[in-house]
Design a protein around this nucleic acid. Structure first.
Lengths: 245, 245
DNA sequence: CGTCCCTTTGATCCATTTCAACATTCGTGG
DNA sequence: CCACGAATGTTGAAATGGATCAAAGGGACG
């Protein structure tokens, strides 16, 4: 299995150069493979926490429901992402994982982390950094949810998505495929499907975006960056303090 | 320096038993000590990221502002907490740190983490778990901000605070000291100070809470837990997969 | 005892929700 | 290849939770 076949290695080596041994360690995480249809629930909140997953292709998301049915999507997963990482700290899954489209996932057991922590300080530092960077991103989302209007939130979401996709896909320009429904976008941004529709229409009229099928073009990225005070958290991390192998 | 003098050791050994060597490693993080007056800004978002801090006593919080002044408080820090952990992944601080009252902090350099990652797999696993658990907590906050009413958010905040304080303070019953102003609570919950006032009054009338000076008693904890579908993320973590020293 | 900060109160306003109907797209089987 | 039904998106009217604004109380502290 060559390292180029692994989205995870692609994503992680964007930040720091990895030894052969470390690449091999990561590759073993993607040994197993399972495919799921669109709209399938892979595991549910409350389930015992057995596996983590690396996304090979397709989009998925994690969500929680309140008892009365209100739903909050907390994370959108793309190829190369590790799913279920936060739940490693706890005995039971805190979210439900649902596919957006047909998806291929690579499950691996929590205990694989044990080996990494014992044998590769550098990879440990990288995993820790990813976890901490994801915290920063969650904080950005929190800021959006707590203090931004609908249009600002939508803008923030689009900027975040395109920044993430650019990491593994450097050829990307200003157009993204957006396979999620407006109801799902609403559940991610803490709004309603109706208001997402109205906001998209408004943003299109105002020349911020252009929609065509499920493709979305960002026309005024700079204006949206200013509107939301957006910071790209993905482009680079501080790896200067990492232990050397 | 005995281990009982360290809030950090107290907090961490709640989850897993630590070797003498590991306790000593943690204790060195708390060697230095600085005190700050109430309402002081210790560092600002955008500053170069040099130190982390362990809280020795007093409350503080981290926040970000939008360019037009809207503020979001993203984390409230208590004794034993590590401040600035998420920013380790990045070169610059993403939030500003402000004290709520007189505070004593122990600064230590990022590079101390390097030593821990190289020398103690178990402590590395614990730090990683803390980071991941904090992600779960942020997800809970996100759910509250995205989908809960004002009264539910206030309830969630109070339950979260009391759960955290119970870790280092097992004698705690149902009454907490709440040194934050209503404006600060509003900035944490994505509301306004006016509406926080109205919500507190309503909750007091309805018999959920009782206020006296800056002490707050939770009268109907069970009802509030049900109202918010609250889960305690602090009481225990899954340490079963940790490497042994 | 005056000043400043915090909390409370009430009136009014507005962004978003809710509800309901209608339009469009898409997948599926006949 | 078309017809159908289900899911998704759009539209408009009415309702509402929380924001905004402004003024008045209350407490702590010099």
């Amino acid at each position: 299995m060559s390292s180029t076949s692994s989205c995870l290695v692609t994503k992680l080596s964007h930040y720091v150069s990895l030894s052969q041994a470390d690449c091999a360690r990561l590759a073993t995480l993607e040994k197993a493979e399972r495919t799921f249809d669109a709209g399938h629930e892979v595991y549910q909140g409350g389930d015992e926490n057995k596996d983590l997953y690396v996304v090979k292709h397709g989009w998925a998301f994690s969500y929680t429901d309140l008892p009365d049915g209100r739903r909050q999507i907390v994370k959108i997963h793309h190829p190369g992402d590790i799913i279920g990482f936060p739940d490693v700290a706890l005995k039971h899954a805190t979210t439900t994982l649902r596919t957006v489209e047909d998806v291929c996932l690579c499950p691996f057991p929590k205990s694989s982390l044990d080996e990494i922590l014992r044998e590769s300080p550098k990879l440990s530092a990288l995993l820790l950094s990813i976890a901490l960077r994801d915290q920063v991103v969650l904080i950005d989302v929190l800021r959006a949810m707590g203090r931004m209007s609908a249009q600002e939130r939508v803008s923030y979401m689009l900027l975040d998505l395109i920044s993430r996709l650019r990491i593994t896909n450097p050829g990307m320009t200003d157009t993204i495929r957006l396979p999620m429904t407006q109801s799902q976008i609403a559940d991610y941004l803490g709004l309603t499907n109706v208001y997402i529709s109205k906001t998209f229409i408004r943003m299109e009229e105002d020349g911020y975006i252009h929609r065509d099928q499920n493709r979305l073009q960002i026309l005024r990225e700079d204006a949206m960056i200013e509107l939301t005070d957006f910071h790209d958290r993905y482009a680079d991390m501080d790896t200067s303090w990492f232990p050397q192998d």
